[in-house]
Simulated assay, not measured.
Amino acid sequence: MFQGVLQKMYTEWADPIRYYLPMEGDFVLMNSLIGRNIGLDFVGYCCMNCGQNKPIFRQGYCKECFFEVPQTADWVMHPELSKAHLNIEERDLGYEQQVQLQPHYVYLANSSDVKVGVTRKSQAPTRWIDQGAHEALIVAEVPNRYLAGVAEVALKAHLADKTNWRKMLTNQITAVDLLRVKLEVRDFIPEEVQPYVTEDFKPLCIHFPVERYPTQVRSLQLLQTPSYKGRLMGIKGQYLLFEDNTVFNVRGNEGLVIQLTISH
């Protein structure tokens, strides 16, 4: 049995991707649990910032911390709002400069249908793995988050920017030629970003450790169902996929303290 605060699973590039769940100073290789029964039991809360046993509001933080920490500021979800390149602070200028003023990718990914997104260069391919994308293609590499956001906003007028998580988890993937899409939308990229458009022509292909996909999805929320047991059939994105069509979003439950039990 393991106990710990839920955090997103770490990933390792392999074929298929390897997943590790951090649990109180240890790591559980989740791939090795596929085909086995595992139990998830809710124990309590632990805010990922203050560490207190306070109800989690969003993204692993209690309500007070959520509205204070720089990791949840508006520019995180809306890169075009980044201001560190102007030396303007939103919550913590040092953190914002560290994150915003580094190379970023504008990319296309296919996890259900083609979508446009932004990620730090240092976060590739982790970002695409976490989204459950089976293909990704870089559109541009820019020097800061603001420029990436400007490009994303322009491309969102022509492409989706959200993943259909139900289609992703049931593996209903629309076949898309990402290179063709890149060439089709290239002219919509703002002039200040055009010099940073890359000449990548081959998408990165990602394979996930899934023995069987659910035919429909039933989302497990530990605050509503504090004890669950099922046979793990695969992992995709940050989701655990179970034999009874239950899916559990590890990242969506960050900050909950759980017990993890394993049986045959």
Rank of each mutant, 00 (worst) to 15 (best):
G60R: 07
R218K: 15
L108M: 05
I189Q: 06
Q224A: 10
D15T: 14
I88S: 03
I34K: 07
H207G: 05
P103G: 03
P195A: 04
N53K: 12
V139Y: 01
G117D: 08
L33M: 06
I262Q: 01
G60V: 10
F242G: 04
G25M: 02
I56M: 02
Y20E: 01
H134T: 12
M23N: 03
R212D: 06
Q102D: 01
C46G: 14
P16L: 09
Y61Q: 08
S227I: 09
T261A: 02
S122I: 12
V176S: 03
N49E: 15
L256G: 07
S219Q: 13
K156T: 13
D74R: 08
A136W: 10
P55G: 13
D161A: 02
A133T: 06
N110R: 12
T174E: 15
R145H: 03
G255Q: 04
L81K: 13
L155F: 01
P103I: 02
N245E: 14
I56R: 01
F27W: 10
L204E: 13
A140M: 08
Q194N: 06
A136S: 14
R58E: 14
Y239N: 11
Y228T: 09
D187F: 03
D41M: 11
P214C: 08
Y61F: 15
P190K: 06
K115A: 03
M1A: 11
V106S: 00
M77C: 07
P70I: 02
E80I: 10
D244R: 12
S82I: 02
H85Q: 08
N37H: 14
A151C: 10
Y105W: 05
R58T: 10
D130R: 01
F66P: 03
D15L: 12
D74N: 10
C46A: 15
S111A: 15
P143Q: 02
G4L: 09
L220K: 07
E211V: 07
R145Y: 02
T119S: 15
D244Y: 13
D113Y: 13
D26V: 13
Y146S: 00
L6P: 10
Q216L: 11
I38D: 00
R231S: 12
R58C: 10
Q52E: 15
N49G: 07
G149M: 00
L178C: 06
Y45S: 11
G25A: 02
L86Y: 12
A14S: 15
L40N: 01
A124H: 14
L147E: 08
N253M: 09
N37P: 05
C50H: 01
G252E: 05
V118T: 06
I138K: 14
G149D: 00
M1I: 10
R145L: 05
I235H: 08
M9T: 06
G39K: 09
I56S: 00
V118G: 00
R212W: 03
G39W: 06
Y213G: 11
E64G: 05
Q123K: 14
Q123E: 12
L260Q: 00
V181M: 03
T11N: 09
M168A: 15
I34W: 07
L40A: 04
I56E: 02
Q3A: 10
A124G: 08
V139S: 01
V99T: 11
L155S: 02
Y107E: 08
